[in-house]
Design a protein around this nucleic acid. Structure first.
Lengths: 135, 135
DNA sequence: ACGTATTTGTACGTATGTATC
DNA sequence: AGATACATACGTACAAATACG
């Protein structure tokens, strides 16, 4: 896979797309280690900053998780059930402060449940599933 | 507001935080134009790339929207109601392809509704609200 | 237990392209 | 046409966490 420098799509986007394809095809299974940034630099002939931006795109989409030792395909988390009989459900991205407080990773939205009257409840979307009408 | 170069928090994060505070306090109202990147460069004495990263953080959180003419505080969108009697509700971030196809901005999650049996329905979280038990 | 190599994070400056005013 | 403003991309450098001998 070689990037196209004359394409209208940004290089970092092309690189993100090629990695995304490898993840969705199952070639890179959940939990698996991704190649290092410098590997992609060699493979595509772009700068490390560009590769890092591609990684940021995938983190934002919740496809990968990254720490100082590298990046991995996000493993599926077990999701707790939250039952709801009456109310509303929405979603939004957390602020950094909320992410820290709730201990959730990048690319994970918050589910916002309003039961009427009370304060809204928020749940990390990778660890909760709202069950409706199953009572 | 002056950034602290000796603080352990990254400069781009400090700048994002200061803008976020101004938005949440209402000083920067929804729909309002933000100062230009170079204004923040002058104000904080950092590079433009660092300011651009702070902006990217706020876009990712869905707080601001950016186009070629600048950045604005995200105006509230009217949200259509989706009623649900029985099923599950979750949320996740869209891929770039989905964002393009559905015409949604950065920092907006997808709400995933499963009614059982059928394919899941997806809704941009800034334009839909799931109503439960109000039938 | 220690040092080294690897890998990502942060931040700078710079340059070019492109859309808007 | 010119000024403004953001997007993309390069190279570079150092810091910090982790992994490995």
């Amino acid at each position: 896979m070689v990037v196209d420098r004359f394409a209208p799509t940004p290089l970092y986007w092309q690189i993100a797309e090629s990695i995304r394809t490898r993840i969705e095809s199952g070639e890179l299974a959940p939990g698996r280690r991704l190649p290092a940034e410098l590997d992609f630099v060699e493979e595509h002939g772009v700068s490390r900053v560009t590769v890092a931006r591609a990684m940021a795109v995938l983190r934002k989409e919740g496809l990968i998780v990254t720490d100082r030792s590298g990046s991995r395909v996000r493993p599926p988390a077990s999701r707790a059930s939250v039952t709801l009989d009456r109310g509303t459900v929405g979603a939004r991205m957390p602020t950094d402060a909320e992410r820290r407080k709730l201990g959730i990773g990048e690319g994970v939205p918050l589910i916002v449940v309003e039961r009427g009257g009370q304060d809204p409840e928020i749940y990390p979307a990778d660890r909760a599933l709202i069950e409706v009408g199953t009572g």
